[in-house]
Design a protein around this nucleic acid. Structure first.
Lengths: 115, 115
DNA sequence: CTTATCGTCAACCAAACGGTTGAATATGGG
DNA sequence: CCCATATTCAACCGTTTGGTTGACGATAAG
């Protein structure tokens, strides 16, 4: 079903949500802590997290009164696979190939994607 | 700027627009021909094409009275790069590696991504 | 028990989205 | 010149989105 794809891409279309995902790359976080750096109400962030969870990009687990948010990078796979279909008619992309190797073989810098 | 990323992901979030991109994988098309398989007005498709063009995913060139639409797969690169950042903490992904090799070395099947 | 904290819910709002229809603007063909 | 074709424009419409605020339920702390 393409609804999954709809949800993933729609979730990624918002810069606040991409920033949240970037934050969660570093570590799991409580909802309040996710909200802290944003100039926006907690309720708004809570909604963004719901959207990210619906898209499968994060999971949320309540422990005590705090709800922990965890990145689920696998959810990007379907979207990534779909996108890669559009690269296949380009001339062989050696830059991407090198980048891929570097990443996969552990020589990456660990740089965070820009938010 | 992340506005480019906003536009690309938002453009990809709509199944009609993804279907259009898939069609353009095969060949350049005129607006009317793009619209033909959809149960939707020509004006609606014209709007979708405008959105795809604004995101840089296609370009449009007017020759005579017909406007040709051309896929621009490079526009996916920024989005793809951003997404790949979230895969780098997974254990080495050999499936993706193989798929990458197959694609880049010309043994791909040419399968279209699902719309 | 009382109070503070964590997070969501509900109602509301303005703006954007995805679609329609009908008119308008090229451009090409007979 | 006249007509058909290709595409966009403009106005409109219902729904969704991204945000606000205030009240609320659950849990932890004193």
């Amino acid at each position: 079903m393409s609804r999954q794809l709809d949800q993933v891409f729609a979730a990624l279309a918002d810069p606040t949500r991409r920033a949240i995902l970037s934050m969660l790359l570093e570590d799991d976080m409580a909802v309040t802590d996710v909200a802290e750096p944003f100039e926006m109400s907690l309720a708004a962030i809570s909604k963004h997290l719901t959207i990210l969870a619906a898209a499968g990009l994060i999971t949320q687990e309540k422990r005590g009164r705090v709800k922990w948010c965890k990145l689920e990078p696998d959810a990007l796979k379907s979207a990534s696979v779909w996108m890669q279909g559009f690269g296949q008619f380009e001339p062989v992309n050696l830059d991407a190939f090198e980048a891929f190797l570097e990443r996969e073989l552990g020589n990456g810098t660990g740089d965070m994607p820009e938010s």
